[in-house]
Design a protein around this nucleic acid. Structure first.
Lengths: 203, 203
DNA sequence: TCAAAAACCGAACACCGTTAGGTAAACGTA
DNA sequence: TACGTTTACCTAACGGTGTTCGGTTTTTGA
């Protein structure tokens, strides 16, 4: 018999394997040896199903780093685990990024981040903005790896765009570049925040 | 009679008005007093059409700030104009973010950014990562405004999540918060890069 | 054991992107 | 101006999509 969690698992597997376009209610049903209409006994709509698997994917995100009162550590742990969760299911990134953060768990995490920053000495408004900024970084980085921008045939721009002809852009190294870029962005961002923080809490 | 630019304009208007899902070949054709099949005399596919309007939207992006050799200014001008271009057509952001950067103009811009950074004294590998990082920030910020995360009914979390109960989250101020967050992220990131740069080019 | 509830199915609806083939209009050339 | 050719457009259809309706089957719980 079908179960919500069984459908969820199969749907996530299908998205991971065949991409977002690869997930249709009929194909998912087929995977479960069932007719498409049966799925609607468990999910009201396809969007609901997508929101659910997006939700599950986000469960790995870790906001415990704020517990010690070290905001820099809290942000780092949060951002890295956030990015890791997205990278684990790249085909799902657009759904997660587009989905409204209305879900219970998402609100709880947002609250924890905000609270952690305020507890560490940031003004509330800054806490809001820092939370948003960090999310920008994570989501932007994940979208980029989803897009797989510069692909196979480097020949196209090898000669025409001299500045891009470095090995750096070769897609074999794309994952490494992505990771290093993210770490650079995160640490530069945090370094900049350090200065701001020092300016706000002099002495 | 139909024309490529006429179709492009009508499609963009339709996306702006009704969102991405609102654009179908049949509806677009109706808007132009024509049958859907006629559109295929001018565009090989719907994806081509989307890529084209995405392309047009990105034409506003300005990489001229690198001309003076001031990398910080170059990045700032680039990032702001990039973000502005995306914000002008929020419904199109997923398309632009997902679309591979295979288009001529996109490559030219990427080359200009990379070249500008290298000319200003950054090592090639850093230039690559900084370009990517900046893009993360811009795309992440744009995706966020596309998603319109925390919406209307604040009541839901008003009492339950004390840290989020600030006026900051009210959706009337969402655009302002978005903008301030982006500017904070950008300047913190650039401040952090300043330190890195000083470490690389001592004295 | 048996009624009530839940799960599943077959068929259909309205929509989608796209194509094949035919007709009408616009064009270039003699 | 006349005519052949190319191009633009249309009608109709194909295979796919998400979703709903009504009926049948299975599971549940008293």
């Amino acid at each position: 018999m079908l179960s919500v969690s069984g459908i969820r698992t199969a749907a996530l597997a299908l998205v991971d394997r065949d991409g977002l376009e690869g997930l249709s209610m009929r194909r998912l049903a087929q995977e479960l040896d069932v007719q498409a209409a049966s799925l609607y006994s468990h999910y009201r709509t396809k969007e609901d199903l997508l929101a659910d698997i997006a939700n599950e994917t986000m469960a790995e995100v870790d906001v415990s780093g704020f517990d010690t009162g070290d905001w820099r550590r809290g942000l780092t742990v949060w951002a890295r685990s956030y990015r890791a969760a997205l990278a684990a299911h790249p085909n799902l990134v657009p759904v997660i990024a587009a989905g409204p953060g209305r879900r219970e768990a998402a609100l709880r995490r947002a609250d924890a981040v905000h609270g952690g920053l305020v507890a560490a000495g940031w003004p509330a408004r800054h806490a809001t903005m820092i939370g948003a900024s960090t999310k920008y970084l994570v989501v932007g980085a994940a979208m980029n790896s989803f897009a797989r921008g510069f692909d196979a045939d480097v020949q196209v721009y090898r000669d025409r765009y001299p500045n891009l002809s470095q090995a750096h852009r070769l897609s074999e190294h794309a994952a490494e570049i992505d990771n290093d870029s993210f770490e650079l962005a995160l640490s530069a961002f945090l370094d900049g925040l350090d200065q701001t923080f020092a300016g706000l809490n002099p002495r």
